[in-house]
Protein backbone atom coordinates (compact mmCIF):
# COMPACT_ATOMS: atom_id res chain seq x y z
CA UNK A 1 0.00 0.00 0.00
CA UNK A 2 3.07 2.20 0.11
CA UNK A 3 2.56 5.56 -1.52
CA UNK A 4 -1.16 5.13 -1.89
CA UNK A 5 -3.27 7.69 -0.21
CA UNK A 6 -5.20 5.28 1.88
CA UNK A 7 -7.13 7.79 3.90
CA UNK A 8 -8.08 9.85 0.91
CA UNK A 9 -9.16 6.58 -0.67
CA UNK A 10 -11.18 5.69 2.37
CA UNK A 11 -12.96 9.02 2.38
CA UNK A 12 -13.62 8.67 -1.32
CA UNK A 13 -15.05 5.23 -0.71
CA UNK A 14 -17.24 6.52 2.06
CA UNK A 15 -18.68 9.33 -0.01
CA UNK A 16 -19.03 7.48 -3.29
CA UNK A 17 -21.13 4.83 -1.69
CA UNK A 18 -21.59 1.14 -2.14
CA UNK A 19 -21.35 0.82 -5.89
CA UNK A 20 -17.94 2.42 -6.09
CA UNK A 21 -16.72 0.33 -3.20
CA UNK A 22 -16.54 -2.91 -5.07
CA UNK A 23 -13.73 -1.31 -7.04
CA UNK A 24 -11.82 -0.49 -3.86
CA UNK A 25 -11.30 -4.19 -3.09
CA UNK A 26 -8.33 -6.18 -4.30
CA UNK A 27 -8.00 -7.50 -7.83
CA UNK A 28 -9.28 -10.95 -8.70
CA UNK A 29 -5.96 -12.37 -9.86
CA UNK A 30 -3.86 -11.38 -6.88
CA UNK A 31 -2.91 -14.07 -4.43
CA UNK A 32 -4.44 -13.38 -1.00
CA UNK A 33 -2.37 -14.63 1.91
CA UNK A 34 -3.61 -14.74 5.51
CA UNK A 35 -0.46 -14.84 7.59
CA UNK A 36 -0.15 -15.72 11.27
CA UNK A 37 3.55 -14.93 11.02
CA UNK A 38 4.03 -11.19 11.47
CA UNK A 39 5.47 -9.04 8.70
CA UNK A 40 8.94 -9.00 10.26
CA UNK A 41 9.09 -12.77 10.04
CA UNK A 42 7.79 -13.42 6.53
CA UNK A 43 7.17 -10.11 4.73
CA UNK A 44 10.55 -9.87 2.95
CA UNK A 45 10.09 -13.39 1.55
CA UNK A 46 6.62 -12.63 0.23
CA UNK A 47 7.94 -9.49 -1.47
CA UNK A 48 10.76 -11.45 -3.07
CA UNK A 49 8.31 -14.07 -4.31
CA UNK A 50 6.03 -11.44 -5.80
CA UNK A 51 8.96 -9.87 -7.60
CA UNK A 52 10.41 -13.12 -8.92
CA UNK A 53 7.15 -14.71 -9.99
CA UNK A 54 5.29 -11.62 -11.14
CA UNK A 55 2.32 -12.78 -9.05
CA UNK A 56 0.73 -9.96 -7.07
CA UNK A 57 0.29 -10.69 -3.35
CA UNK A 58 -2.00 -9.16 -0.72
CA UNK A 59 -1.32 -10.13 2.87
CA UNK A 60 -3.55 -9.93 5.94
CA UNK A 61 -1.52 -10.28 9.13
CA UNK A 62 -3.01 -11.33 12.47
CA UNK A 63 -2.64 -13.90 15.18
CA UNK A 64 -2.83 -17.43 13.70
CA UNK A 65 -5.78 -18.46 15.85
CA UNK A 66 -7.80 -15.35 14.93
CA UNK A 67 -7.13 -15.89 11.22
CA UNK A 68 -8.21 -19.52 11.51
CA UNK A 69 -11.48 -18.32 13.04
CA UNK A 70 -11.84 -15.75 10.25
CA UNK A 71 -11.36 -18.34 7.49
CA UNK A 72 -13.84 -20.65 9.21
CA UNK A 73 -16.39 -17.84 9.51
CA UNK A 74 -15.90 -16.74 5.90
CA UNK A 75 -16.47 -20.31 4.74
CA UNK A 76 -16.66 -20.85 1.00
CA UNK A 77 -16.68 -17.12 0.38
CA UNK A 78 -13.19 -16.58 1.84
CA UNK A 79 -10.91 -14.34 -0.19
CA UNK A 80 -7.89 -16.19 1.21
CA UNK A 81 -5.83 -18.45 -1.06
CA UNK A 82 -2.99 -19.30 1.32
CA UNK A 83 -2.94 -19.56 5.11
CA UNK A 84 0.40 -19.35 6.90
CA UNK A 85 0.16 -20.45 10.52
CA UNK A 86 2.58 -19.77 13.32
CA UNK A 87 1.33 -22.75 15.29
CA UNK A 88 0.28 -26.31 14.49
CA UNK A 89 -2.92 -25.80 16.51
CA UNK A 90 -4.50 -23.14 14.27
CA UNK A 91 -3.76 -24.85 10.96
CA UNK A 92 -4.82 -28.19 12.46
CA UNK A 93 -8.15 -26.64 13.44
CA UNK A 94 -8.83 -25.55 9.86
CA UNK A 95 -7.72 -28.92 8.49
CA UNK A 96 -10.13 -30.72 10.81
CA UNK A 97 -12.90 -28.31 9.79
CA UNK A 98 -12.34 -29.22 6.13
CA UNK A 99 -11.28 -25.70 5.20
CA UNK A 100 -7.95 -26.67 3.58
CA UNK A 101 -7.21 -28.02 0.10
CA UNK A 102 -4.82 -31.01 0.17
CA UNK A 103 -1.34 -30.19 -1.14
CA UNK A 104 0.31 -32.20 -3.93
CA UNK A 105 2.64 -34.99 -2.76
CA UNK A 106 5.72 -33.41 -4.34
CA UNK A 107 5.28 -30.32 -2.15
CA UNK A 108 4.66 -32.28 1.04
CA UNK A 109 7.59 -34.60 0.30
CA UNK A 110 10.03 -31.69 0.56
CA UNK A 111 9.90 -31.92 4.37
CA UNK A 112 10.54 -34.98 6.56
CA UNK A 113 7.60 -37.23 7.26
CA UNK A 114 5.74 -35.94 10.29
CA UNK A 115 6.38 -32.28 9.52
CA UNK A 116 3.24 -32.18 7.43
CA UNK A 117 -0.38 -33.22 7.95
CA UNK A 118 -1.11 -36.88 7.18
CA UNK A 119 -3.87 -35.81 4.82
CA UNK A 120 -1.58 -33.27 3.09
CA UNK A 121 -3.72 -30.43 4.48
CA UNK A 122 -0.67 -28.39 5.43
CA UNK A 123 3.10 -28.58 5.22
CA UNK A 124 5.63 -27.51 7.85
CA UNK A 125 7.77 -24.53 6.90
CA UNK A 126 10.06 -23.86 9.83
CA UNK A 127 10.29 -24.95 13.44
CA UNK A 128 10.60 -23.47 16.87
CA UNK A 129 11.83 -25.47 19.79
CA UNK A 130 10.39 -25.35 23.27
CA UNK A 131 13.02 -24.25 25.73
CA UNK A 132 13.68 -22.99 29.24
CA UNK A 133 14.87 -19.38 29.08
CA UNK A 134 16.80 -18.33 32.18
CA UNK A 135 18.45 -15.27 33.68
CA UNK A 136 22.20 -15.91 33.88
CA UNK A 137 22.59 -13.56 36.85
CA UNK A 138 20.10 -15.53 38.90
CA UNK A 139 20.54 -19.11 37.75
CA UNK A 140 23.60 -21.32 37.49
CA UNK A 141 23.37 -23.38 34.31
CA UNK A 142 24.63 -26.48 36.11
CA UNK A 143 21.52 -26.51 38.30
CA UNK A 144 19.14 -26.76 35.39
CA UNK A 145 17.33 -30.08 34.94
CA UNK A 146 17.73 -32.53 32.07
CA UNK A 147 13.99 -32.94 31.64
CA UNK A 148 11.07 -30.55 31.58
CA UNK A 149 9.27 -33.08 33.78
CA UNK A 150 11.72 -32.32 36.61
CA UNK A 151 10.52 -28.72 36.85
CA UNK A 152 7.87 -29.91 39.31
CA UNK A 153 10.62 -30.56 41.87
CA UNK A 154 10.55 -28.34 44.98
CA UNK A 155 13.63 -26.27 44.12
CA UNK A 156 11.88 -24.94 41.00
CA UNK A 157 8.58 -24.14 42.71
CA UNK A 158 7.44 -20.65 41.69
CA UNK A 159 10.67 -20.08 39.73
CA UNK A 160 9.44 -20.88 36.23
CA UNK A 161 7.14 -18.46 34.37
CA UNK A 162 4.44 -20.00 32.17
CA UNK A 163 1.96 -18.69 29.58
CA UNK A 164 -1.03 -21.00 30.09
CA UNK A 165 -3.32 -19.01 27.77
CA UNK A 166 -0.81 -19.00 24.93
CA UNK A 167 -1.13 -21.24 21.87
CA UNK A 168 2.40 -22.62 22.00
CA UNK A 169 2.06 -23.65 25.64
CA UNK A 170 -1.24 -25.32 24.76
CA UNK A 171 0.44 -27.14 21.85
CA UNK A 172 3.18 -28.29 24.22
CA UNK A 173 0.62 -29.65 26.70
CA UNK A 174 -1.07 -31.47 23.83
CA UNK A 175 2.27 -33.11 23.04
CA UNK A 176 2.63 -34.15 26.69
CA UNK A 177 -0.84 -35.71 26.59
CA UNK A 178 -0.01 -37.56 23.41
CA UNK A 179 3.32 -38.90 24.64
CA UNK A 180 2.63 -39.53 28.33
CA UNK A 181 -1.13 -39.95 28.49
CA UNK A 182 -3.63 -37.61 30.07
CA UNK A 183 -2.96 -38.74 33.64
CA UNK A 184 0.73 -38.01 33.59
CA UNK A 185 0.23 -34.75 31.69
CA UNK A 186 -2.34 -33.64 34.26
CA UNK A 187 0.03 -34.61 37.07
CA UNK A 188 2.78 -32.44 35.53
CA UNK A 189 0.41 -29.49 35.19
CA UNK A 190 -0.76 -29.87 38.77
CA UNK A 191 2.83 -30.21 39.94
CA UNK A 192 3.69 -26.93 38.21
CA UNK A 193 0.56 -25.23 39.55
CA UNK A 194 1.36 -26.39 43.09
CA UNK A 195 4.44 -24.14 43.08
CA UNK A 196 2.23 -21.15 42.23
CA UNK A 197 4.35 -20.10 39.23
CA UNK A 198 4.14 -16.58 37.82
CA UNK A 199 2.07 -16.63 34.65
CA UNK A 200 2.17 -14.25 31.72
CA UNK A 201 0.18 -13.63 28.58
CA UNK A 202 2.73 -14.74 26.04
CA UNK A 203 6.35 -15.54 25.21
CA UNK A 204 7.30 -11.88 24.74
CA UNK A 205 6.11 -10.96 28.25
CA UNK A 206 7.94 -13.92 29.81
CA UNK A 207 11.24 -13.14 28.13
CA UNK A 208 10.90 -9.47 29.14
CA UNK A 209 10.29 -10.48 32.78
CA UNK A 210 13.17 -12.99 32.86
CA UNK A 211 15.45 -10.41 31.24
CA UNK A 212 14.78 -7.82 33.93
CA UNK A 213 15.20 -10.48 36.62
CA UNK A 214 11.66 -10.57 37.94
CA UNK A 215 11.48 -14.33 37.35
CA UNK A 216 14.56 -16.59 37.12
CA UNK A 217 13.23 -18.88 34.35
CA UNK A 218 10.40 -19.34 31.90
CA UNK A 219 9.06 -21.95 29.48
CA UNK A 220 8.94 -20.41 25.99
CA UNK A 221 9.81 -21.04 22.36
CA UNK A 222 13.51 -20.61 21.62
CA UNK A 223 13.08 -17.68 19.19
CA UNK A 224 12.30 -14.99 21.77
CA UNK A 225 15.58 -14.88 23.67
CA UNK A 226 17.47 -14.48 20.39
CA UNK A 227 15.33 -11.52 19.40
CA UNK A 228 15.45 -9.91 22.83
CA UNK A 229 19.24 -10.15 22.81
CA UNK A 230 19.55 -8.46 19.47
CA UNK A 231 17.49 -5.61 20.95
CA UNK A 232 19.78 -5.44 23.97
CA UNK A 233 22.96 -7.59 23.87
CA UNK A 234 23.55 -6.96 27.59
CA UNK A 235 20.43 -8.84 28.67
CA UNK A 236 21.46 -11.73 30.96
CA UNK A 237 19.38 -14.27 28.99
CA UNK A 238 20.15 -17.77 27.79
CA UNK A 239 18.09 -20.67 26.46
CA UNK A 240 18.45 -24.02 28.17
CA UNK A 241 17.65 -26.86 25.76
CA UNK A 242 16.56 -30.00 27.52
CA UNK A 243 19.01 -32.61 26.13
CA UNK A 244 18.60 -36.01 24.50
CA UNK A 245 15.31 -35.41 22.79
CA UNK A 246 13.45 -34.60 25.99
CA UNK A 247 9.81 -33.59 25.55
CA UNK A 248 10.81 -30.18 26.89
CA UNK A 249 12.57 -29.49 23.59
CA UNK A 250 9.70 -30.39 21.34
CA UNK A 251 9.73 -28.84 17.88
CA UNK A 252 6.58 -26.83 17.04
CA UNK A 253 6.30 -26.31 13.31
CA UNK A 254 4.87 -23.31 11.52
CA UNK A 255 2.73 -24.38 8.58
CA UNK A 256 1.62 -23.32 5.12
CA UNK A 257 -1.61 -24.40 3.50
CA UNK A 258 -3.96 -23.70 0.60
CA UNK A 259 -7.43 -22.59 1.62
CA UNK A 260 -10.30 -24.67 0.19
CA UNK A 261 -12.04 -22.99 -2.71
CA UNK A 262 -9.02 -20.98 -3.84
CA UNK A 263 -9.19 -20.22 -7.54
CA UNK A 264 -5.45 -19.60 -7.69
CA UNK A 265 -4.29 -23.04 -6.63
CA UNK A 266 -1.29 -23.13 -8.99
CA UNK A 267 -0.02 -19.77 -7.79
CA UNK A 268 -0.61 -20.85 -4.18
CA UNK A 269 1.49 -23.98 -4.74
CA UNK A 270 4.23 -21.86 -6.29
CA UNK A 271 4.31 -19.68 -3.18
CA UNK A 272 4.46 -22.67 -0.83
CA UNK A 273 7.25 -24.25 -2.88
CA UNK A 274 9.09 -20.93 -2.69
CA UNK A 275 8.72 -20.93 1.11
CA UNK A 276 10.26 -24.40 1.14
CA UNK A 277 13.05 -23.37 -1.26
CA UNK A 278 16.69 -22.60 -0.46
CA UNK A 279 16.30 -18.85 -0.16
CA UNK A 280 13.36 -18.99 2.25
CA UNK A 281 14.78 -21.80 4.33
CA UNK A 282 18.03 -19.85 4.70
CA UNK A 283 15.98 -16.80 5.74
CA UNK A 284 14.28 -18.81 8.50
CA UNK A 285 17.62 -20.14 9.68
CA UNK A 286 19.61 -16.90 9.54
CA UNK A 287 17.14 -14.07 10.00
CA UNK A 288 14.50 -15.51 12.32
CA UNK A 289 16.68 -18.01 14.23
CA UNK A 290 14.35 -20.90 13.38
CA UNK A 291 14.93 -24.50 12.31
CA UNK A 292 14.61 -24.93 8.57
CA UNK A 293 12.65 -28.09 7.81
CA UNK A 294 13.73 -28.99 4.28
CA UNK A 295 16.42 -31.66 3.98
CA UNK A 296 19.85 -30.18 3.36
CA UNK A 297 19.14 -26.73 4.79
CA UNK A 298 21.70 -25.57 7.34
CA UNK A 299 20.71 -25.13 10.97
CA UNK A 300 21.86 -21.89 12.60
CA UNK A 301 25.06 -22.75 14.54
CA UNK A 302 23.68 -20.93 17.59
CA UNK A 303 21.05 -23.67 17.92
CA UNK A 304 21.46 -27.24 19.10
CA UNK A 305 21.77 -29.64 16.13
CA UNK A 306 18.57 -31.03 14.75
CA UNK A 307 19.16 -34.55 16.09
CA UNK A 308 19.33 -33.35 19.69
CA UNK A 309 15.82 -32.02 19.86
CA UNK A 310 12.62 -33.98 20.32
CA UNK A 311 11.13 -35.47 17.17
CA UNK A 312 7.70 -35.71 18.67
CA UNK A 313 4.95 -35.38 16.13
CA UNK A 314 1.39 -35.36 17.31
CA UNK A 315 -1.52 -36.71 15.35
CA UNK A 316 -4.07 -34.24 16.60
CA UNK A 317 -7.00 -36.30 15.30
CA UNK A 318 -6.15 -39.35 17.33
CA UNK A 319 -5.78 -37.57 20.61
CA UNK A 320 -8.45 -38.69 23.06
CA UNK A 321 -10.91 -36.04 24.15
CA UNK A 322 -9.75 -33.74 21.37
CA UNK A 323 -7.96 -30.46 21.76
CA UNK A 324 -10.68 -29.05 24.02
CA UNK A 325 -9.43 -31.39 26.70
CA UNK A 326 -6.05 -29.57 26.66
CA UNK A 327 -7.47 -26.25 27.81
CA UNK A 328 -9.76 -28.00 30.27
CA UNK A 329 -6.77 -29.74 31.81
CA UNK A 330 -4.83 -26.48 32.04
CA UNK A 331 -7.84 -24.87 33.73
CA UNK A 332 -8.34 -27.79 36.10
CA UNK A 333 -4.69 -27.71 37.16
CA UNK A 334 -5.26 -24.26 38.67
CA UNK A 335 -2.59 -22.52 36.56
CA UNK A 336 -5.09 -19.86 35.55
CA UNK A 337 -6.14 -18.98 39.05
Amino acid sequence: MKGRHVVVGSLACLTLGATALAGCGSDEDRLVVYSGRTENLVGPLLEDFAEESGIGIDVRYDDSANLALLIDEEGDATPADVFISQSPGAVGYLDAAGRLEPLPDDVVDLVPEGDAADDNGWVGMSGRVRTLVYNTDLVDASELPDSVLDLTEPQFAGQVALAPTNGSFQDFVTVLRDQLGDDEAAAWLEGMAAGDPPTFSDNTAIVEAVGRGEVPMGLVNHYYAFRAKSEDPDLPLENHYFPDGDLGSTLLVTGASVVAGSDLEDEAHQLIEFLLGDQAQAFFSEETFEYPLVAGATVNPALPPFDEIAKTRVDLDELGGGLERTTEMIDESGLNR
Partner: peptide, 21 residues
Amino acid sequence: PIGFETLATRIWADAEAVFLA
Protein backbone atom coordinates in the same frame (compact mmCIF):
# COMPACT_ATOMS: atom_id res chain seq x y z
CA PRO B 1 -9.09 -3.61 3.71
CA ILE B 2 -6.05 -5.77 3.12
CA GLY B 3 -2.80 -3.86 3.53
CA PHE B 4 -4.36 -1.10 5.66
CA GLU B 5 -1.91 -0.46 8.47
CA THR B 6 -2.50 1.62 11.57
CA LEU B 7 -0.11 2.46 14.36
CA ALA B 8 -1.85 -0.13 16.56
CA THR B 9 -1.35 -2.93 14.02
CA ARG B 10 2.30 -1.93 13.71
CA ILE B 11 2.76 -1.97 17.48
CA TRP B 12 1.13 -5.38 17.71
CA ALA B 13 3.21 -6.93 14.93
CA ASP B 14 6.47 -5.56 16.33
CA ALA B 15 5.73 -6.51 19.93
CA GLU B 16 4.61 -9.98 18.87
CA ALA B 17 7.94 -10.64 17.16
CA VAL B 18 9.94 -8.92 19.96
CA PHE B 19 10.94 -5.94 17.86
CA LEU B 20 10.42 -3.89 20.99
CA ALA B 21 12.25 -0.81 19.73
